[in-house]
């Protein structure tokens, strides 16, 4: 019988595996270097151009602009949701005339730029001043803020109607048939069976639509509404300081990222019964 008489001598640790420098790693380092340089440039621009007088002067204006943007988007999202409900049902209606009207509304508002819609409402309808005054609507169309609100509302209503329609149609027919078999009236079935299921499907598109609307709301600055973008343009026209735009970018990114995180939380919370 043979057995080992001596232990194997200790060996050096294996050579640490060195990852080869691949093309993608080089590209990554290059892009990250560009980001780093840009970040340093932005910080340097802000630090070197720091001016307490400007900060005290325009800081509060930025905050009020932020509030204008948020309130404008918030109100128009809610009003748009209210308006989108009949639109979505008209779009699904079996009556062809009603369906065609709703379809053309949606097509027109999704096919034209928000900027052109805003100009049409603010400058276009604003040119009918005597008529509007005689109807008593001039106070509405005189204010750029109301016109911005109207165009954002009409625009988002079209998009939200499509989201809602898609979500409702994604609920299987059997759900409504089951409700009918149980003798539940159609209105109750819609409210308690179809809509809760549809809204979960619609959750993500709704979040995207709100983000799109926040970004789109920047155009109201062009018709003299002092939202975040409007205050930025005001500050830039006074100071010719490039960092005004960088601050606006930081604000917008912060809003959008916050909304995205909140929406992710909301989605995990609301779909927790669907987890397996």
């Amino acid at each position: 019988m043979s057995y080992a008489r001596e232990l194997i001598a200790p060996r050096p640790a294996p050579v640490e595996y060195q990852k080869p420098l691949t093309g993608s790693r080089v590209a990554a380092l290059f892009i990250l270097a560009i980001w780093g340089l840009l970040g340093i440039a932005i910080v340097w621009l802000i630090v070197s151009g720091w001016d307490v007088a400007k900060f005290e002067r325009y800081g509060p204006r930025y905050l009020s602009g932020l509030w204008t943007t948020i309130s404008l988007v918030g109100i128009s999202v809610i009003l748009g949701a209210v308006l989108s409900l009949p639109l979505a049902f008209a779009r699904m209606s079996t009556n062809r005339v009603v369906g065609a009207i709703a379809y053309s509304y949606v097509y027109v508002f999704r096919g034209t730029p928000l900027l052109a819609q805003l100009f049409l409402i603010y400058y276009g309808l604003g040119s009918f001043r005597p008529e509007l005054q005689s109807v008593g609507l001039w106070w509405f169309f005189r204010e750029a803020w109301y016109c911005g609100l109207l165009s954002l509302t009409l625009n988002t209503a079209a998009y939200q109607a499509e989201i809602l329609r898609g979500a409702i149609e994604s609920v299987p027919r059997g759900q409504l048939e089951g409700a009918a078999a149980l003798g539940i009236p159609k209105s109750v079935a819609l409210r308690k069976i179809v809509l809760p299921q549809a809204l979960i499907v619609a959750l993500r598109p709704y979040g995207n639509e709100i983000i799109l609307l926040i970004k789109g709301s920047a155009v109201v600055a062009i018709v003299t509404v002092y939202d975040l973008m409007g205050e930025t343009r005001y500050a830039f026209s006074r100071t010719f300081d490039y960092q005004t735009y960088l601050w606006a970018a930081i604000f917008y990114l912060a809003i959008v990222e916050t909304l995205r995180q909140v929406w992710n939380l909301l989605e995990t919370r609301l779909t927790r019964h669907l987890k397996r």
């Binding site: 930025t232 735009y245 990114l253």
Partner: peptide
């Protein structure tokens, strides 16, 4: 590196 790019430009308004 690419994630930073898409996050920034999908979050900023086109006008800005």
């Amino acid at each position: 590196a690419v994630g930073i790019y898409t996050t920034i430009f999908r979050g900023l308004p086109e006008l800005l």
